[in-house]
Design a protein around this nucleic acid. Structure first.
Length: 261
DNA sequence: CTCCAGGTTCTGC
DNA sequence: GCAGAACATGGA
């Protein structure tokens, strides 16, 4: 089975630090997300898949018009270059809970290690479906020592506490909230600060004005725009002025550009 | 062995 | 408020 795609690149989208529960297989990818597992492989404008078509279409945002985003990215010289180098890199539509836990794992870590954390959390707390361990549901990540055994380090206690706080009601409330209210609710969780809250707002809630600032973004903004050492607030204010209203997309392209330089 | 990784929290001015 | 240290762990 396959889906016709336009302005979409599977590799750039999957390997851009947005998701961590995937592995390469047969020129394609085996992806696990929330309660789904599927295989995808791109050949030109065809996306071959094995799995739930509606879920895959929505997950990669394949029905969205990308031309508006492209026009936005072309307005700035550096995001224009990044667009040329990584065309078809899309922001994905993630499950809120999995995205939240993934990015709590991300703090002061690296992508290979986050992948390991998520894999171990799935194996230790997730349900098995057709032989594969899916990401555990809210409330299931409930043993502190086991969470530590998933190589989560100092983040273990945060995951443990968040798992106690978050339930379906909480998730629905955050989904309905606007950007600033959602961010506020996320930051109330232990181990979640502005950066992680912004990642969740952007990757799971679709708030395109969100602009997560990590070490790579700080670097790329200081090197190319501010031309000086700066703090979080300065970068945030610059981004709001310079990359409105799709600063989230600008961020993702700048991140990819600088990280893979 | 040291340094660093998609940060947050705690501490001391 | 704001910089600096502490927090675990694995890979380079």
């Amino acid at each position: 089975m396959h889906i016709k795609v336009k302005d979409f690149n599977l590799k750039h989208s999957i390997e851009s630090g947005q998701i961590f529960n995937f592995e390469q297989k047969d020129e394609g990818y085996l992806v696990k997300h929330s309660d789904k597992a599927f295989f995808v492989k791109q050949e030109g404008n065809n996306l071959f898949y094995e799995g739930n078509k509606d879920f895959i279409t929505n997950f990669f945002g394949l029905n969205e018009d990308f031309s508006k985003i492209q026009a936005h990215l072309k307005k700035d010289p550096l995001t224009k270059k990044a667009l040329k180098k990584y065309p078809g890199l899309r922001l994905l539509h993630q499950d809120l809970w999995e995205c939240l836990i993934s990015f709590v794992c991300s703090s002061a870590s690296n992508i290979p290690k986050i992948k390991k954390n998520i894999k171990l959390l799935s194996e230790n707390f997730g349900e098995k479906k057709n032989g594969t361990c899916l990401f555990p549901k809210p409330g299931k990540i409930n043993n502190l020592q086991t969470i530590k055994d998933c190589a989560t380090g100092f983040r273990a206690k945060y995951i443990y506490e968040i798992n106690k706080i978050v339930n379906e009601d909480w998730l629905e409330k955050v989904k309905k909230a606007d950007y600033s209210k959602a961010k506020e609710m996320l930051i109330e969780l232990p181990g979640v600060g502005e950066k992680i809250a912004d990642c969740v707002c952007l990757f799971a809630l679709g708030h395109h004005q969100s602009f997560p600032i990590d070490v790579w973004i700080k670097r790329v903004i200081e090197e190319n725009y501010l031309k000086k050492q700066s703090n979080y607030k300065e970068i945030k204010e610059f981004a709001q002025k310079h990359f409105n209203p799709y600063s989230g997309y600008s961020q993702q392209y700048l991140y990819q550009w600088r990280r893979l330089l």
